[in-house]
Design a protein around this nucleic acid. Structure first.
Lengths: 227, 227
DNA sequence: GGTGGAAACTGAGCCTAGTCAGTTTTGCGA
DNA sequence: TCGCAAAACTGACTAGGCTCAGTTTCCACC
């Protein structure tokens, strides 16, 4: 009926719209009842599709979560990059961006937990998207490192991309530790920890003469930081 | 019958023995048919217990996997620590130990994948065990760092434990990336990558005058390493 | 040696992610 | 306008992890 003046890609449009309905339904239910307590049948019902249709769009419930979350992380990172502190140090910039992600994760730790657990293990289109996200982030910071290296502020003999990749590794590993814990630290504290870790990695970029200043008493270097 | 001269803790002994049977059955089935293809019912049958009994000993199938794997990793690390290269650098030592773990993971990537995905998110007794394992490993390396700091070989102003923790983070993050990939690199290549990452982190420990030697051409620092 | 109650155990059955044979919708060429 | 192949969709069904009400085993105390 009335299949009149629709752009040729009607099929495509329908599909896209259906996908949106699924995502919207899932988002709502996940945040309302939690990830584990939401069934795929409920999502399908709310999206007004058959129970099996959901799996034509997403390979699994986990896949769906990762797709949703990754899109949101994109926005978070874009926002953070747009509000970088003027004249801040590289460390400040990194903490600003990664801190924004951490704050976001803190809003719904159960979802974040499931996402962080899955993100590196999804396959298919989502896997590519996740890795593009990570590579993009690494590239952003690598660029900012190079910028400073060219300005002579940082040691130019250090491979910038590798530093950026290492920082992401520090972020993800600590995030997992944080979210994996039953009793969770406040995000502010977690960010402070991450800053320490970053600072240590970024020291390799410091120009040589600048160091040595505050030499700690030797035994202090093994001291356990309060947990 | 003949319940004669058994030590009082019979209950305890039975429990321990039953746990062993479950672990043995699971190990065998997992390595024979893979993790996903093994059902908890099969494990229970082989261990000669009821289907529900398994869950009195392990909270979930994942929990069981983590318990088994962690015990094995203990052995791997003990072995690697016992065969540390004499007179090797700190980097050599780290690559020796973490490389042994990677080689172990390569033997059964499907199991390793499942383990690595779960290990930081398990709860209960297993969670404590996993974190003891990690903390123990970090402490080992921190000790070796301090040793060299005291000998004057490394910069004593750098917090040793934090360096060790960062290295573990690099290990775990890269391991996840490696195991998450569909087409997997040979472990030797993966170890080489990890070595690079470690090397970069460990530079912070170098004594100041030693650096600058081979200054790379400035633009080279962003160059993408071949993948 | 008997007994009460706790700890350990069992397996039928529940729940839900994911499948697939069959049905409907769509786009296109005649 | 019609026919038809391919794409999209459906929901009854399956598999398997996990639960829990009921049963058995164990042991401390009489």
């Amino acid at each position: 009926m009335s299949a009149a003046a629709l752009d040729p890609p009607r099929r495509e449009r329908n599909k896209q719209e259906k996908r949106e309905r699924i995502v919207a339904a899932a988002r709502r239910l996940f945040s309302r009842k939690g990830f584990a307590a939401t069934t795929t049948a409920q999502i399908a019902e709310r999206a007004e599709i058959g129970a099996g249709t959901l799996f034509l769009y997403f390979a699994s419930k986990d896949d769906l979560l990762v797709a949703i979350f990754r899109e949101q992380m994109d926005a978070v990172v874009r926002g953070a990059l747009a509000t970088l502190p003027k004249r801040g140090s590289l460390l400040d910039e990194m903490v600003h961006v990664y801190g924004a992600m951490i704050d976001f994760h803190e809003r719904d730790p159960e979802l974040a937990r499931a996402f962080v657990k899955e993100m590196l293990f999804v396959s298919g289109k989502n896997r590519a998207a996740v890795h593009e996200f990570i590579d993009g982030l690494d590239a952003q910071f690598a660029e900012r490192i190079v910028l400073r290296q060219e300005r002579g502020e940082l040691d130019a003999s250090v491979p910038a991309l590798l530093v950026a990749e290492n920082c992401f590794a520090l972020y993800i590993a600590r995030l997992q530790k944080w979210l994996g814990a039953d009793a969770r630290l406040a995000s502010a504290q977690h960010i402070a920890r991450l800053r320490e870790a970053f600072a240590l990695q970024l020291r390799v970029l410091e120009l040589k003469p600048a160091r040595v200043l505050r030499a700690a008493p030797r035994t202090a270097s093994l001291r356990k930081r309060g947990r």
